[in-house]
């Protein structure tokens, strides 16, 4: 553990090695990504610091997953630069849609993948205990021997979160962690991420769920090929920014000090027109 790290615990979540606040973890400068001749991201300026809790919102095709890949380092920028602090442990929770659910692994086997460094194929007693503990902490300890396809969407999200947490990450990136799950489970997931952030973990997630993210995440990025706006929910969730980001008119109300986004009703305009 470096001098800038301290070990803290929380009664509900995993112990986390936290970095000194405001340590710069990733800096993207004028970063762009093109797939062939198709630009996906351009001119992205974004800095992530230790302790950030960032929600990235934007329409389908806005480049949210590509932005996560840039931050992870699995995608190189075709223009500009992305610098990452060395030695930062990263956890990644992929989109559920990208996973082959017929793959023959149980929940326990899947979570154990996080410990890929050990040469022996079978888990040690300590590893088994760690897997059981992280699954128990996320409320799915009883599912350890189930095949991954037998889980609900929320349980699948928790399983991948468990795999990421088993690496004791300092930075956690989640791609659409609130998609494919019901409202209560979505609330639980965002609440859980809030606890991890309270314990010092840096978190970045992408989502389509504007109201959920506005209620739980303190720092938002509106993305549409580039960063349209970054700031607190009340600064980002404005009609102007959302229309610029999503290309559709939206109204924003305030409820208990939080923005609530509504699709704008166009009087006299029939549905589907």
């Amino acid at each position: 553990m470096s001098p800038s790290e301290a070990r803290v615990t929380h009664p509900e979540v995993a112990p986390v090695h936290v970095l000194a606040p405001a340590t710069e973890l990733v800096r993207a400068e004028r970063a762009g990504v093109s797939y062939g001749d198709t630009p996906v991201l351009a001119g992205v300026d974004l800095t992530l610091r230790a302790g950030d809790f960032v929600g990235v919102v934007g329409p389908s095709g806005a480049g949210k997953t590509t932005l996560l890949r840039l931050l992870l380092g699995t995608q190189r920028p075709t223009t500009g630069t992305v610098r990452r602090a060395p030695g930062v442990r990263v956890g990644y929770v992929p989109q559920l849609e990208t996973v082959s659910w017929n793959f023959p692994v149980t929940v326990g086997e899947c979570v154990l993948m996080a410990r890929s460094g050990r040469l022996l194929p079978w888990p040690s007693r300590a590893e088994r205990a760690d897997v059981a503990a992280v699954l128990e902490r996320l409320g799915i300890g009883h599912l350890v021997d189930r095949h991954i396809r037998e889980l609900s969407g929320g349980q699948q999200q928790r399983m991948f979160l468990a795999r990421a947490l088993l690496r004791d990450p300092q930075m956690l990136l989640l791609d659409e962690p609130t998609s494919g799950i019901d409202v209560a489970t979505r609330h639980d997931m965002l609440h859980l991420l809030g606890h991890l952030h309270d314990d010092g973990m840096t978190i970045v997630l992408t989502t389509h769920d504007l109201n959920g993210v506005a209620a739980h995440v303190p720092d938002l990025v509106a993305l549409h090929g580039t960063v349209v706006r970054r700031g607190a929910p009340l600064d980002v969730m404005t009609s102007e920014v959302l229309e610029q980001t999503f290309g559709a008119p939206m109204d924003v109300l305030q409820h208990l000090g939080m923005p609530v986004v509504l699709d704008r009703h166009a009087p006299g305009r029939p549905h589907g027109a």
Binding site: P94, M113, S116, G117, R163
Partner: peptide, 23 residues
């Protein structure tokens, strides 16, 4: 297969996350 069991499994199941996780 025995010595690279975990890396092979992770890279087969989810290469992108495996890459991020040090495989």
């Amino acid at each position: 297969v025995a010595s690279r069991y975990r890396a092979l499994l992770f890279a087969t199941f989810d290469p992108e996350v495996a890459d991020v996780s040090g495989v």
